[in-house]
Design a protein around this nucleic acid. Structure first.
Length: 573
RNA sequence: GCGCCCGUAGCUCAGCUGGAUAGAGCAACGGACUUCUAAUCCGUAGGCCACAGGUUCGAAUCCUGUCGGGCGCACCA
């Protein structure tokens, strides 16, 4: 998926990429308008047709240009149509329809060449590689290391991994990073909660602190702590021992949870690494820029002047005991990320982070320049997940310790593929009801199987054929075009041709939810084709070869799209 | 009260940098297995795109307001 198209080789085959044909058509039409009307013309846009019955590509630029050129939209569209109608072998038909739409139908020759090339060399090389040679950092999950991951983290984990994979699909070199908050007040509470359980085992009364952690897993940790380290520890004398032990156990817990979904990180970045040097440097920097001030009553307490930067309220960044609030190391962390010089920094947070991440962005803008921050930092805030079982909402409460964990979810659903796919079907900013019964169902209520089944079917066909390679060599683009003339075959090729640019658009907008839609569309078109056309015909090698070529192209497309979601492409089901 | 997100078919959701008849899956109804896996296919039905204004040649899409839901408004993260 990472290789770049070899344009020269394609030229020799008369094949140009989906992106290039669109670019060339737009350029030709823009040039024709400029020369005919002798005015500056904003570049026209060639877009996918909304409805395939109009054609493959459409352009509506004639309508907005009508006022400026003082001509009717249809006249303008006609000028555009004339400029491309006979000069592109990739174009079969151009028409002007309705109020001034320009509709373009791609030629069978081009579609056949494209399909053959995808079958032979894979779809990946046709995806425009905008990210080639560039690096991106994607931060996600970053949950407090205080316990197992929950359903909310699960959505974020899946989303972050898919965003990363999507960026990789268009050529980015991606690093996945988990910011490990191991230095804050929550860690203190966790350590004390552990100490409390430990003391209880030893028969000493000690309450779990206010806001502490009640989960059963802490009891297990306490028992292990006792076994491994002995019974001589006291709170708060050996505070650090409790804290370190809890953090390391939480770390293991979290990485095992992530492993259930097949997610790994390139780096776990510990907040404690920033303390105190990096944070003190950041404070000095903020002070130099006069963005902080001392509290009027307690000079050890330090405030951030957010209200002067257009945010609603000033915030404390250093408490009177000298410890930092969440925002402080987070600003340092982001400065660190910028210093590492990525071309793109993606932050993924739950919607409860809205205020803090706006604050951090604002401060970064003041320190580094708004231009740099707005072009290089992109934040995805996802909404929460409501679990539904049998039409009833599943109550979740972190405090009481009866939350549904990521592990529970994957166990109940029974498949990481299903969990990933369903989470990725909704766009990040939309609320989401996750129906445990439907997700756990082993039937056609489950959208994942529909797509995977298409891949498995193709694999089944391939198993029927003894020598796929030599059969495929029987089939060149010309033959493909003359044999695959059915509507279903033709529409399948048309659909495949749009995939590279749709992937590219999804990556540009950091929206992996577009991929499941696309997958379902490809699978649907394939299932329809499969039902109506027999692929393997022992008496007709030519037809077999042509349809097999199409199957190979679909297979490659499904595989690449499933890879973006991190969902398996099974040979058998 | 303030900020952000959401409100599209019975259910879950796409479509939202404005464009030609609003889409899909599931559920419902009617059909299709002596043929490469029927976890499939074909067909039918289902919608004042929350509501009210505005911008324009054109609005589910942009703006304003109202109503409804989620999240936040910590010296937690």
């Amino acid at each position: 998926m990472k290789t770049n198209p070899d344009w020269k080789q394609m030229r020799s085959l008369h094949l140009i990429s989906p992106l290039q044909i669109r670019t060339e058509l737009a350029a030709a039409m823009t040039a024709a308008l400029a020369s005919k009307f002798q005015v500056e013309i904003p570049s026209v846009e060639v877009l996918p047709s909304r409805n395939l019955s109009f054609g493959d590509l459409a352009c509506n630029s004639a309508m907005p240009l009508a006022g400026k050129l003082k001509r009717s939209p249809r006249d303008i569209a006609t000028v555009m149509a004339d400029s491309i109608s006979n000069s592109f072998p990739q174009v079969d038909k151009v028409s002007v329809d309705g109020p001034g739409f320009l509709n373009i139908t791609l030629s069978g020759e081009y579609l056949a060449e494209f399909t053959a090339a995808v079958a032979e060399r894979g779809l990946g090389r046709f995806i425009p590689s905008e990210g080639k040679g560039k690096t991106a950092l994607v931060e996600f999950v970053s949950s407090n290391p205080t316990g197992p991951l929950t359903v909310g983290h699960c959505r974020q984990a899946v989303l972050g991994d898919a965003v990363s994979r999507l960026l990789e699909a268009v050529g980015w070199n991606v690093e996945r990073e988990y910011y490990f908050n191991d230095a804050g007040k929550q860690m203190e509470r966790l350590a004390e909660s552990l100490a409390s359980r430990y003391m209880n085992i030893l028969g000493v009364a000690m309450e779990i602190p206010e806001g502490g952690y009640q989960g059963e897993y802490i009891k297990d940790w306490a028992e292990d702590f006792l076994k491994e380290k002995g019974d001589s520890f006291k709170w708060p004398e050996q505070k650090d021992d409790f804290r370190e032990y809890a953090a390391s156990r939480a770390f293991v817990l979290i990485s095992e949870d992530l492993k259930l979904l097949g997610i790994t990180f390139d780096r776990y970045f510990a907040e404690s690494e920033l303390i105190p040097d990096a944070v003190e440097n950041t404070l000095k920097l903020l002070d130099t820029k006069e963005l902080i001030y001392k509290d009027s009553e307690d000079p050890r307490k330090i405030w951030l002047k957010l209200s002067e930067m257009g945010r609603p309220d000033d915030r404390v960044v250093v408490r009177d005991d000298g410890t930092y609030t969440y925002r402080m190391p987070d600003i340092s962390y982001h400065l660190n990320k910028f210093k590492r010089d990525y071309d793109l920094i993606v932050d993924i947070f739950g919607s409860d982070h809205i205020d803090t991440c706006k604050d951090v962005e604002t401060v970064l803008g003041n320190l580094l320049g708004e231009e740099i921050v707005s072009t290089r930092l992109r934040t995805i805030l996802h909404q929460f997940v409501t679990l539904v079982r049998g039409g009833e909402k599943v109550k979740m409460s972190t405090r009481a310790g009866n939350f549904v964990t990521l592990r529970d979810l994957v166990d109940e659903v029974g498949s990481a593929d299903v969990v990933r796919y369903i989470f990725l079907t909704r766009r990040a900013e939309a609320h989401m009801d996750f129906d445990l019964e439907a997700a756990g169902a082993d039937n056609d209520e489950n959208p994942v199987f529909y797509v995977q089944y298409a891949f498995a079917r193709i694999s089944g066909i391939l198993r029927k054929v003894s020598d796929v390679e030599s059969l495929l060599h029987l089939c060149n683009a010309e033959r493909l075009e003359s044999i695959l003339t059915g509507d279903r075959e033709r529409n399948l090729m048309r659909l495949l041709e749009t995939v590279p640019l749709k992937v590219s658009a999804a990556a540009t907008s950091l929206e992996p939810h577009r991929i499941p839609d696309l997958l379902a569309e490809v699978a649907r078109a394939f299932h329809g084709f499969y039902q109506h056309h027999r692929v393997v015909d022992p008496d007709n090698n030519e037809i077999t070869a042509a349809r097999l070529t199409l199957c190979m192209a679909v297979r490659s497309t499904l595989n690449d799209l499933l890879t973006i979601l991190g969902v398996r492409a099974p040979e058998k089901m």
